[in-house]
Design a protein around this nucleic acid. Sequence first.
DNA 1: CGGTAAGTTGAGCCGTGTCAAGTTTAGTGG
DNA 2: CCACTAAACTTGACACGGCTCAACTTACCG
Lengths: 254, 254
Amino acid sequence: MTSTTASLAHAASGGWIAPRPKLVPATRGSATKINSTAPEAPNETTALLTLFRAHAFEQHFQPGSTVLLHGDTADAIYLVVSGTIRCCTVDSEGHRQIFSFSKKGEFVGISDMDIWHFTAEAVDHVILKSIPRSTLEQELAVNMSLRQEVRAYVRALLMRRERQMLTLIIAKGPDRLYQFLKEFAATRSGTGHVVLPMCRRDIGDHIGLSMEGVSRAFSRLKRQGLIDLKSHDRFKIVEDTDRTARPRPQLARA
Amino acid sequence: MTSTTASLAHAASGGWIAPRPKLVPATRGSATKINSTAPEAPNETTALLTLFRAHAFEQHFQPGSTVLLHGDTADAIYLVVSGTIRCCTVDSEGHRQIFSFSKKGEFVGISDMDIWHFTAEAVDHVILKSIPRSTLEQELAVNMSLRQEVRAYVRALLMRRERQMLTLIIAKGPDRLYQFLKEFAATRSGTGHVVLPMCRRDIGDHIGLSMEGVSRAFSRLKRQGLIDLKSHDRFKIVEDTDRTARPRPQLARA
DNA sequence: CGGTAAGTTGAGCCGTGTCAAGTTTAGTGG
DNA sequence: CCACTAAACTTGACACGGCTCAACTTACCG
């Protein structure tokens, strides 16, 4: 046993017996409103959504269960109705990298063609709409605007990954956390406190910090008055009234 | 002036007046052989290559000149005939992230649709074939297998970026350099020493180290006998005869 | 042969991982 | 409703990697 953290990560990601999701026909007209500024789907996706409205079935997932597994045949595509999904890869030594948290109105699995190149797991209780990949492929063959949408969508994913790489290298821990929180809060419409569905380790595997590092970064952001941390999973970005005054919103030594 | 390194990076990437590339009709049948295991084009790309064979023009670039600039209209796509190109983004403070070095037989600019989301610069003397984007778009509308190729290509780019993110977080400096060198050497057919066209800073901006860090990593790899460093830009991966013997090819403390 | 750019190496410092306590929170059963 | 327990989170001490600054070496070019 090389490391306890590694085995823990493994247990949380792939070791569990995934609860079989119950297949339920989608309730027609259940109005899944799409936030077009959502991080993983920043473009117009009317054609894709139309596809989901026409053919989708709903699936429920327990917290921690596996939605799709790296290496399996990619025979469906998904749309998150509620809850949060983490998309990640795990290397041979148990290290995990979470590329994105997919929330309400965001797609999962659009980029792959034959085999999943990543793993998706439910963070909390998740409801998903899914349609067979064959349906997508058939429609792609005849629907020009759908093709453009999918192309723009994958291109946006690529840009996002490159931006993530850049910030991983440049920004220090607290800066990365702040960016993540700001982005996360932006997808939530309300003005009150935002609830974080994922744990510290998940956040760490997303922004490249250890669990403890995330905790320290939270404390520092709170101490500096950049966030209002009500409880360990409820926060609010403190509006910076004079952002133009300070040349760099970088972190002070405090 | 906040930092000398930042301004240097800026000068090298965007500040120069780019020498205008000379437009030369492509010599027919100049047999650009494609290495299908090339990092940035790991899939079959016969349809794309056919397109280049039919319509391409050749362009020459001086070392350091800009091939395409972030924000400009993406009105062409490129195929590297010879030389090396660095594809990167530069943030507002001058930090640079090089996502890939594109070499002979690799495409550049396939993923974008309207505006370049990155900058490409010639590392050494570069010869490029290019075709108008409109040609690609017209062909995409009618050519199913070309669509599949482009889709597979962009998906491969996405996977590559995610793998890069993972190694950035997990592996330490020398490990990252070793991976990079091994990958780079793999695209060169010969059995002798491999020539590195790019400088230490370029490598650093690619694997997330400072210039000095790269130098130290080189020294360490050499000291441990993992690479044979003939000169500062000529190396060879030392064949590990008993790779199975050691459980992890990780770096020793030496 | 001197000058400039690129690369190497050393000293000191800061950020963050690890290990090891504490502390809070949520869940469970009396 | 409260006590108990387990899991998650927080915080501190220490070590190590890598950045920065600075000096030196090497290679290249006029």
